[in-house]
Design a protein around this nucleic acid. Structure first.
Lengths: 356, 356
DNA sequence: CCTCCCTTCGCAATCGATTGCGATGAGGCT
DNA sequence: AGCCTCATCGCAATCGATTGCGAAGGGAGG
């Protein structure tokens, strides 16, 4: 007799006494399998139980406070009802917002999520993904897909259900914002204001977000007959110091750009700092456009013009798409429409001359 | 014969074929129980296996890529090796940083974490906690403890292992920063600069963080013989609009305060906005002190003086404390020391006169 | 009145890992 | 040489939920 008494792993919490199917079965005078069926969420299964038996069991379960043991269910079914989520970092409010959407939609569908930070580091991505898989998550939502890594391809080869979010990758199911359009919106906004000499803080090349926002922006100017020279497009990390350093370089160019588009609000804040440090005024001497429209953008001393994407909704859609996949339904990629929010960082001074 | 073939829940991912103890046992020519013992992390258990048998099994497991099935282990042991974490919101960089620390320390100890947002809403706190418990987490880290709610007491009554983080509650094990000291540091800093008429944006009363920071600040001024009148202490949400609204009120007082302490950086940013809106200059006309020293504080147009607490470390300690509890070791509360980082928002203009 | 069918349940195996106890064997001791 | 001890390992039960199959029961139709 392996067990001597109560629960083995009860450990510290002596008080908990989880209700099991067997207890309900005993009280209801039926077999445990009947209870399982009555409590099933699957209609086909539940229909095998007489209505009055089912309601009896249902109310009994309610009274006793029954909660299905996920370990038992997972062991038998092979599905954990847990989703793994990989993000570059949760301290980035953009990804944190996406994650909140993911978690909300997952919870609504009876799934839990487990997140992990990868710092955009390929080694960490692999390690974290393995850890999640070891936890037997049913699928993955990847918010940190890199175009220069083959991790996603490997996971796909193992037939692991996955959905990309925020960043795209050719041939993979993803839920993203239309970054190409977003970049174009930023470009057209500056064109409307009369800017002709502009520059781009383009983010990291391995992220489709930065790459496509940049491309959309460049497209707009190219189509307007004002192609942006390559020297005016610089890569940079997606943060304040990164944007600041990039802008310091761009502001040293002669003639100086009259506007700078940063593919990320934090980089844009760094750009604004560099503009001030150069003794210039944001919005009058140099227009600045950011991307993501984080809450802070509107609260800055010079409110930041930014492109807004439905990040929370993106997370929700990513989760539901993955869950549909798990249920065998076909899944398709989605691209959500961004909008531009114009503020003082581009409007303060009105259009600048071509030789300001 | 309930099963017809391969794995039942394989679902979409047809490729995965998890290695089990039984497979290793077969290849090693030993019983599955021996494999289990050889692979155990518990030394007492592993010592029951001969060294060479153990190494054989260990290398075999490595080659086959064995990963313990958490469901099987959890079912038998009653422990899921999962920790539940409750935070007000993950989009708050402060809590996100704490959570990163929690997750890192948990992962290092072989635990996974599951987070949930509660929006500081008592109803949601209960629901999320229940959901986590239904998932059979081994313990909880609560980052959203409210002094006006009895949820924590209820959980404790059920003997659920838990540790508070960030916010304290009397009689509970917690890992926090010394907010009383932090508030005092802010107060002493302003006293050193000669301020005599100050005000406080005190945050929400149910959070020990805001309450204690405020108290420490008031203590410093009271001990200096310059008690702050109640009318100069206003509560507010921990965000930009909240700080802005509170500051608009405070700036309308006559004589106007020469300095404002906000118990949270985002509220402080709102304060700075209100100061600007009033046509005043932050750091010269009105000094502003924030709290938490978020990365953005240093990047603001007028860099923000702020009290810095080791948030990541706080998360790490909270997780290890909880895990120690789970292992039956005694746990004690910890209070980490904050430090003040002085910047232009208090230094720009030097001390102001008493009738500025 | 008998037979057939359908609804409703029970039976029992099963998922993978853990663990108390007992069996086996080797070695040392008297 | 016989017995005892200890190290090592196997046996089998067990955690809780799920599910294919079969049985029992009731009702309807011939």
């Amino acid at each position: 007799m392996p067990r001597q008494g109560a629960r083995a792993g009860a450990g510290v919490q002596a008080g908990r006494a989880p209700v099991t199917l067997a207890q309900i079965a005993r009280q209801a005078g039926v077999h445990v399998s009947t209870v399982s069926r009555a409590l099933s969420t699957d209609d086909d299964v539940r229909n095998g139980v007489a209505t009055e038996t089912a309601t009896l069991i249902r109310t009994l379960a309610e009274e006793l406070g029954y909660q299905r043991d996920p370990a038992g269910a997972a062991l038998r079914t092979g599905r954990s009802r847990m989703l793994g989520v990989l993000v570059p970092r949760l301290t980035d409010i953009v990804l944190a917002t996406v994650y909140e959407g993911i978690d909300a939609a997952a919870a609504a569908a009876g799934y839990h999520t487990v997140v992990a930070n990868t710092s955009d580091d390929p080694q960490l991505q692999r390690r974290r993904a393995d850890a999640l898989l070891a936890r037997r998550v049913d699928g993955l939502v990847l918010g940190d897909a890199r175009s220069d890594s083959d991790l996603v391809a490997e996971l796909a080869r193992q037939h692991i259900p996955l959905v990309l979010v925020s960043r795209r990758l050719p041939g993979r199911v993803s839920v993203t914002a239309d970054d190409l359009l977003g970049g174009r919106l930023a470009g057209e906004h500056l064109l409307d204001l009369g800017h002709e000499r502009v520059a781009v803080v383009a983010g990291e090349p391995y992220a489709s977000t930065g790459a496509e926002r940049t491309q959309g922006f460049l497209d707009a100017f190219a189509e307007a007959g004002l192609p942006v020279p390559e020297s005016h497009v610089v890569r940079s990390p997606f943060d304040v110091p990164g944007g600041r350093a990039a802008a310091e370089h761009l502001l040293s160019l002669r003639p100086r750009p009259t506007a700078i588009f940063a593919v990320n609000d934090f980089a844009a804040i760094g750009v604004m700092a560099a503009v001030r440090d150069a003794g210039l005024l944001v919005g009058r001497d140099v227009a600045v456009v950011g991307y993501n429209d984080v809450p802070l953008a509107a609260a800055l001393p010079v409110p930041l013009t930014s492109v807004s994407s439905p990040m929370y909704r993106m997370g929700e859609l990513a989760a539901t798409t993955l869950i549909n996949m798990l249920n065998g339904k076909p899944a398709r990629s989605r691209r959500l429409r961004p909008t531009l929010v114009a503020r003082a960082s581009t409007l303060a001074g009105g259009p600048l001359g071509t030789d300001g």
